[in-house]
Design a protein around this nucleic acid. Structure first.
Length: 427
RNA sequence: CGGGGUGUAGCGCAGCCUGGUAGCGCGCCUGGUUUGGGUCCAGGAUGUCGGGGGUUCAAAUCCUCUCACCCCGACCA
């Protein structure tokens, strides 16, 4: 993509409403722009990141044996009256009426819709287990939206719902999701620790939140120091249940089993939440199957959320410096920034254009800064946007046939041939 | 919802106390200059001063109502 035709309105100054690093940087890089409180437009650069995160989440959900569906953003109140949540949910639910005066709502979550679908189509234990997920915009009319997309009112969430015949089956689903989550976050270079949590409005009795440790996290968490040396890739539910980690609302110093010297405290950003809630929805919404004895039994359910739009902000919180964002390669909007130091120098521009074409042919996602701007402005913009690699070509490259390759994270710069730079970023 | 704050050019802000021609920096446009860390020079454009009502000869400024946004808290994926 050429900068001259792309759209990423970068700002030198920080808009006053942006208080935390991720919000500041998302606005300054032109990833998002606010429409009204807690509601944002995703501009091209931000949307690329959002889609990459979404795709990683999707791949890991698929790998875990879940089936993607797409449920609507608007739901009828009637469904929620059946589950009993229409009145319980309170003001956080955005309600509206259609032209026939029927009560509708902008879905804050989708237990009712998916459970109803299950109930209508699945009748036998032989069809279990089943897990359905969808990646869709949700709306919760937060009391106080803040921190940009970290706590927006409209947000993109992956929500997965598991249906099992037995509680043991439900625990296996829960375990599968735990594993999927660990893999998902690891692919974004994030370490998210699962902590015990209250199950809130969704209800149930087994629940973990995935927290990314960050200064600006909204919740305080308490955890066993053993977490710090934990190999999350082999984490099982049983092992997890022996470890102590709790968010502030569940932590009680009097009953905490961890000795003081091993108890750690930190702030965390909740990026995922897993629940087991048994038959809370299957009974009222009629999600019963016939078991092998010919009896109708309600299915055991769980639900599993990942805040995709929030993850964008959380990744930035965990990956930035004074100059700007430092994207992990897996979610970077482009892998490489190509900087033409002097667009009026024809030989220099030809070198850049040629390398740009080769990068495209090699399938490398590249943002080519071909604008007629000062060198300093280009460096500053590129550091701000935080693409993992920068290839810098100037008039001096014309004779030397060398360019500079800079690693945004380490700041390391090396002089090398154009061919070697191409090879280096193509792998 | 309680407490606090802010609305003046696209962005960041000054002006308001003490009423009298609406300003600065960045950005934007034109021309030139510069081109390896936000070049420099000259010229230029851009405002329902959040909105309504009031006081006054005169309101960005005073009074009043209202709207929006932000921060702290309670709440929460």
């Amino acid at each position: 993509m050429r900068s001259s035709v792309y759209f990423y309105p970068t700002l030198k100054e920080t808009p006053q409403e942006a208080q935390i690093a991720s919000h500041r940087l998302m606005v300054r890089t032109g990833m998002i722009t606010q429409v009204t409180s807690g509601i944002y437009t995703w501009l091209p650069l931000g949307l690329r990141v959002l889609k990459k995160i979404e795709q990683i989440v999707r791949e890991e959900q698929d790998r875990a044996g879940s089936l993607e569906v797409l449920m609507p953003t608007i739901q009828p109140a009637e469904l929620w009256e059946r589950s009993g949540r229409y009145h319980d949910y309170g003001k956080e639910m955005l309600r509206m009426k259609d032209r026939h005066e029927r009560e509708m709502l902008y879905g804050p979550t989708a237990e009712e819709v998916i459970t109803d679908i299950f109930a209508r189509f699945i009748k036998s234990y032989r069809d279990l287990p089943k897990r359905f997920y969808n990646i869709q915009w949700k709306f919760r009319d937060e009391i106080r939206p803040r921190f940009g997309v970290m706590r927006g009112r409209e947000f993109l969430m992956k929500d997965n719902y598991s249906f099992d015949l037995t509680m043991e089956g439900a625990k296996a689903s829960y375990q599968a999701m735990l594993e999927a989550y660990v893999r998902t976050f690891a692919r974004m270079d994030l370490t998210a620790i699962p902590v015990r949590a209250s199950s809130g409005a969704i209800g149930g009795n087994l629940s973990h939140e995935f927290q990314i440790l960050a200064e600006t996290g909204e919740s305080e968490i308490f955890y066993d120091a053993a977490y710090e040396t934990l190999d999350v890739t082999t984490l099982t539910l049983d092992r997890l249940q022996t470890l102590y980690a709790a968010a502030d609302e569940l932590h009680d110093p009097k009953t905490c089993p961890v000795p003081q010297e091993r108890l750690k405290t930190a702030r965390g950003i909740e990026v995922g939440h897993v629940f087991y809630f048994g038959t809370k929805y299957s009974v009222p919404l009629g999600a019963f199957v016939m078991d092998s004895d010919g009896k109708q039994v309600p299915v055991e359910m769980g639900s599993y959320g990942i805040g995709i739009s929030r993850l964008t902000a959380a990744i930035i919180e965990a990956n930035h410096d004074e100059a700007g964002i430092i994207w992990p390669e897996s979610v970077a909007p482009f892998k490489v920034g190509l900087l033409n130091m002097n667009v009026k120098n024809e030989a220099c521009t030809k070198l850049c254009d040629d390398l740009y074409q080769k990068l495209l042919q090699a399938g490398v996602e590249v943002l080519y800064d071909d604008r007629d701007r000062g060198a300093g402005a280009k460096f500053a913009d590129m550091d701000l946007i935080g693409l993992p690699w920068q290839i810098i070509i100037g008039p001096r490259s014309v004779d030397s046939k060398q360019c500079e390759l800079k690693n945004r994270r380490t700041g390391e710069k090396v002089e090398l041939s154009l061919e070697d730079a191409l090879k280096r970023v193509s792998r």
